[in-house]
Amino acid sequence: MMMMVSEQTQASASLAGKTTTDVIKQSTNSLVVDGLKEITRGLLTVLKQHNTDPITLEYPEVMPELSDRFHGRLSLLSKSDGTDLCIGCQACARVCPCDDLIQIEMHRDADKKPVIDRFTIDLGRCIFCGNCTEVCPVDCIKFLPDFELADYSREALVLDKKDLTLNGEESDQWRKEHGLAVTVA
């Protein structure tokens, strides 16, 4: 095992099997000629790029293709009939590394069903790590591939439940795209 290392290190001691010393010796055999040759090679390599197609996207007109795992805006999915999916278990708030970024207030109605009174996410402090989406027991809080989140004030970045919640159809669409069971009742 270690013999292999030693042989290989000898062979790969530097670029294309040459040591630094070799490179100097070779390139100084006739410094002027070789130097000019190398500079010309570099110039031609750069010149070759002149006719390549640009790879930049002109952003507002051309949107980048985002993967379905992209960490964009956080959102709350609903059940298929449009009612709240969130059960107010506070799991997302507890694993969030950014202090009280997610705030949930809930009570239980007469049937012991959870009712979410308040659900706010402060996107101004969110680091889009994805911890909350991972621990959610009902797959409710999820990322949308939406990255255009800038706004004019810090207050506008605090999203409440109304801003966050997707309606039933959108939620079904999301679940379909991400391979989850579509109908959630």
Binding site: V5, Q8, T9, S12, A13, L15, T19, T20
Partner: peptide
């Protein structure tokens, strides 16, 4: 392979890193 050079200068570090990309 573990790219190694013995010259210990700036160029050797350059060479080692470029070779590491290939490895």
């Amino acid at each position: 392979e573990v790219p190694v050079a013995t010259e210990a200068d700036t160029y050797a570090r350059y060479v080692v890193r470029v070779q590491e990309m290939r490895e």
